[in-house]
Design a binder for these strands. Structure first.
Length: 278
DNA sequence: CCCCAGGGTAGGG
DNA sequence: CCCTACCATGGG
């Protein structure tokens, strides 16, 4: 556990990059609303709040925020209560996972808003990360509450449920526009209750999410892992299929848990260097 | 022109 | 269960 120290208008968290690497964590395809703004500086939005961060070897400066906001929002968002060092140590018994951890061991699983995560990964299907980001940004600009700095929060389910199918088709989402339209209506009228999903057994939660058109096995796993903090979830996309084919033809070993965290190390490793150093 | 991108659905074996 | 076509869009 790392304790933040007040500094100027913000807080300084003395956490080393190997425990939380912002560049790797915020740009490893799990979240879509953070961007680098120069040397070690990142700006983004989560849980309806705008956040600016600066990373150095000594730690991370959270700009313009109170200790209350840190503990209420960002301590959980960056999953600072989970012991990743223990995970990395266990994972390193496997040669491929050891490579992935050595390559980018500072990745953490972000605890994002379930609704935003569900819509984001609906958009993600058969799509690439830069375009996913652009689509989400467009939704926020048009329908989200302004947060200053020309940035906008991710809109609420109620706001999006009030839109017409034509509003969705004007967003450049391709065929996915109908998926989003259906999804927000299911949530607005109570057919899908995300608070209930959060309390379900994992398999029941999977089933509930897959009642949404456009949510298949992979998207459901991503939503559970990144939006519901279910680190047992194990998304398999095109990169993970390649990793499984190359390194785990017998299947991914059961003993490396939580599998979702291992998955994210592997995904980032494959996507960034294609497993070239293995 | 091709292929690919954090896939899923519908339809037919 | 499997396999395949197709889905809309942009980048390489």
């Amino acid at each position: 556990m790392y304790n933040p120290i007040p500094r100027g208008d913000g807080l300084f968290l003395p956490i080393p990059p190997k425990e939380l690497n912002l560049a790797d964590t915020l740009d490893c395809g799990q979240c879509f609303r953070f961007a680098a703004e120069g040397e070690g500086v990142f700006v983004g939005i989560a849980h309806g709040r705008l956040l600016r961060l600066t990373q150095t070897q000594e730690g991370i400066l959270f700009h313009d925020l109170s200790p209350e906001e840190f503990h209420q929002t960002w301590e959980e968002y960056f999953d600072l209560r989970t012991d990743y060092a223990a995970c990395r140590k266990a994972f390193s018994e496997d040669p491929t996972l050891a490579e992935a951890v050595a390559f980018a061991g500072g990745i953490r699983i972000l605890r994002q808003d379930p609704f935003e995560t569900l819509l984001s990964f609906l958009i993600s299907q058969n799509n690439n990360i830069p375009r996913i980001k652009a689509s989400i940004e467009r939704i926020c600009e048009r329908f989200g509450e302004p947060l200053g700095g020309d940035r906008f929060a991710f809109p609420s389910p109620q706001r999006l449920a009030a839109l017409s199918p034509e509003d969705f088709s004007g967003l450049g989402l391709g065929y996915r526009d109908a998926y989003l339209c259906d999804c927000v209506r299911r949530i607005a009228d109570g057919r899908l209750d995300l608070c209930a999903v959060a309390r379900m057994e994992l398999d029941d939660a999977r089933q509930a999410l897959r009642t949404v058109k456009g949510v298949g096995p992979k998207v459901a796993e991503c939503v559970l892992l990144f939006g519901f903090g279910r680190t047992e979830a194990f998304p398999v996309d095109t990169w993970m299929k390649k990793a499984l084919r190359l390194y785990y033809p017998q299947g991914f070993p059961e003993r490396y848990q939580p599998a979702g965290i291992a998955q994210q190390y592997l995904f980032h490793y494959m996507r960034t260097c294609g497993g070239a150093t293995a």
